[in-house]
Simulated assay, not measured.
Amino acid sequence: MTMANSAFGAGVIVFMALGTAALAYRRGHSLLPWLTLGGLIPIVALPWLFLTKPKRQPGEQPPAGMLPLATISFLAVAGIIGIQVVSAPATIPACDNYFAQSDLKNVVANSPAGKAAGLSIVTLTDIKEVSKTPTEARCAATARMNNTSVVLMDYRFFIEAGQLLIEAHWH
């Protein structure tokens, strides 16, 4: 785990704890137990908080600022998770990975040769990983095309300039 991932994880825990505690305090509960519970197991704390009765008496005003604090905390959690998802580096998939196969089918169908002949892959069988490094995977498979032909497919997944690219050849 990298230092950045640890910082993101700590940020999520802190903001989840703060948001849960702010909502609990607004509903009349003690701050410290809900701060702890919200940080350790928010998936239990939040439903429990809303399924139990508030401890605040009817007509009693909730403390000012707790709802905005909770809202900002939960938005911060969403932002941290969003940043982590967007900044995730490209990774090389396994040759037989479902999404890799789907991407390969799209590459073939949208290639100049695929468009000109109206070709697309129907199924891939006998998928084999020929070689794999951290930045490239070379694969081979048998492809049944939509024109009923069966072809040998050589393809590779590689990372260039931080992007996952696919190159395919069939014969």
Rank of each mutant, 00 (worst) to 15 (best):
M3G: 14
R26D: 03
A88W: 12
M1P: 12
L124M: 06
I159L: 08
A116Q: 12
L46F: 07
T133P: 01
S149R: 11
G82A: 09
P63C: 04
R26L: 03
A70I: 02
I166R: 10
V44H: 09
L18G: 00
T91Y: 09
T71Q: 06
L104H: 02
I43H: 04
T91D: 07
A4G: 03
T71K: 05
H169M: 15
S102W: 04
I72T: 07
I121S: 13
L37M: 08
E136N: 07
R138P: 13
L40H: 14
N97Y: 00
P134L: 00
L119T: 07
V130S: 15
V150N: 08
C139P: 03
K132V: 10
G118I: 01
H29D: 00
T135M: 14
A22T: 01
H29T: 04
S102L: 09
A22N: 05
I83H: 15
L124S: 01
Q61S: 11
R27F: 06
A109I: 12
S6D: 10
W34L: 02
P112I: 08
G9T: 13
M1N: 11
A24T: 03
L32M: 02
L46R: 11
P112G: 03
L32S: 13
L124D: 03
A10K: 02
L37P: 00
A168S: 12
L75Q: 12
E136Y: 09
V130K: 11
P134M: 02
I121E: 05
F74E: 02
G39E: 06
G114T: 04
A137D: 03
H171Y: 07
V107D: 10
L32G: 00
E129M: 11
E160T: 10
L35K: 04
V150Y: 07
T20P: 00
M16R: 05
K53E: 08
A10V: 15
T135D: 14
M1D: 12
L46D: 04
N5V: 05
N97D: 13
K115C: 01
V12N: 06
P89A: 15
L35E: 01
M16S: 10
G162A: 08
G79H: 05
P58C: 13
E136L: 10
M153S: 06
L124I: 06
T71G: 13
N97E: 14
R144L: 05
T142D: 01
I121N: 04
T125E: 00
V108E: 03
C95K: 07
P54F: 00
V86T: 10
Q101N: 03
A90N: 11
A168G: 03
G162S: 14
G65S: 13
L31K: 00
V107F: 04
A141D: 06
A10H: 06
A45G: 05
N97G: 06
I127A: 03
A17M: 05
G19F: 02
V86D: 13
A100Q: 14
P54K: 08
L165S: 07
